[in-house]
């Protein structure tokens, strides 16, 4: 009981000192403290989120997001004065990335997470480094260009994804008679399309371009439709680690200012035939905050 009163008092005092402690935030940032104590930074990567974060033939994580986080580690190394800072790569997946960031196993998860208000309740997101839009993968010459063209036809949607939520709400809003086939992952979505189970597969357009490039005959498929959404990708950081988060965003800002972000984009996305879009070019300008 006594301990509880002391605890409550402590909470009261810390609330009262809230303004003052904000100034001392640098000393209490949990991620920074952890990195200093371990002399290492743990970066989360995915095994097959092409071209953001995936493993090469030697099992080494590579990709656009991975490259960006290597730069973040360099910034952290310089800012904290830790010349022997070590990078630890931790594999994550859609199911465990949030718990691993929340419990501190991963300091920053560098892959392809869409920023949503709901998710912000659990983690913080870095500045956007990529914009994806929900579009459709269809067979070439199918005549399908928009969602309305799918009336009386079928569409595959990845189960439990942001695009699924979007397309379902559009179908309900416009009362379209479109049959929805939920699929487990992107390769099943492509299988459903290639075996004519569905007439279109909808998800983030960058993933559709990736599927198309790996298809036995890429010319047999096309990515169509005007962008139905504007989904920004961010790195995942433990909630309320503002000092660490600003180091991450400062790195992205510097890379964008110096044109290195644009170069990295070309390295990873031109092979997929996805040139830098106008919205993404603008996004790079917006995140290029001056020092």
């Amino acid at each position: 009981m006594k301990g509880r009163i002391v605890g409550l008092a402590a909470i009261g005092i810390s609330l009262a000192l809230g303004v003052a402690s904000a100034a001392r935030a640098q000393a209490t940032d949990t991620v920074i403290d952890r990195i200093k104590a371990k002399k290492s930074i743990s970066i989360g990567y995915r095994e097959a989120s092409i071209p953001f974060s995936y493993i090469d033939a030697q099992g080494k994580p590579i990709g656009y997001s991975t490259d960006l986080c290597t730069r973040v580690a360099a910034t952290v190394k310089a800012a904290l004065g830790l010349p022997d800072l070590e990078i630890k790569w931790v594999p994550v997946n859609l199911q465990n990335r949030i718990p691993l960031v929340a419990n501190g196993t991963v300091d920053i998860s560098c892959e392809s997470a869409v920023n949503t208000i709901g998710r912000q309740a659990q983690v913080d997101f870095s500045s956007p480094f990529f914009i994806s839009s929900t579009r459709f993968l269809v067979k070439a010459k199918s005549g399908i260009a928009e969602l309305a063209d799918l009336k009386g036809k079928s569409i595959a949607l990845p189960i439990n994804s942001v695009p699924e939520r979007l397309i379902k709400s559009l179908i309900e809003r416009d009362k379209l008679n479109i049959r929805i086939v939920p699929v487990r992952d992107n390769s099943e979505g492509f299988l459903a399309l290639s075996t004519d189970r569905v007439d279109a597969f909808s998800t983030d357009d960058i993933l559709l371009f990736g599927l198309r490039s790996k298809a036995p005959s890429p010319a047999g498929y096309e990515v169509v439709g005007k962008p139905l959404s504007f989904d920004s990708y961010g790195f995942l950081v433990q909630k309320n680690s503002t000092v660490f988060l600003s180091l991450v965003n400062a790195t992205l800002a510097r890379l964008a200012r110096e044109g290195e972000l644009q170069k990295l984009y070309q390295t990873w996305f031109e092979p997929l035939g996805v040139p830098l879009s106008a919205p993404l070019a603008t996004t790079f300008q917006i995140i290029a905050i001056p020092e």
């Binding site: 859609l94 199911q95 949030i98 718990p99 949503t116 709901g118 998710r119 309740a121 659990q122 983690v123 189960i159 439990n160 994804s161 939520r165």
Partner: peptide
């Protein structure tokens, strides 16, 4: 199980 994964995907309150 799919529904719980759906809740985790929408809210990140997976636990």
């Amino acid at each position: 199980t799919a529904r719980t994964q759906q809740i985790q995907s929408f809210t990140y309150q997976g636990f």
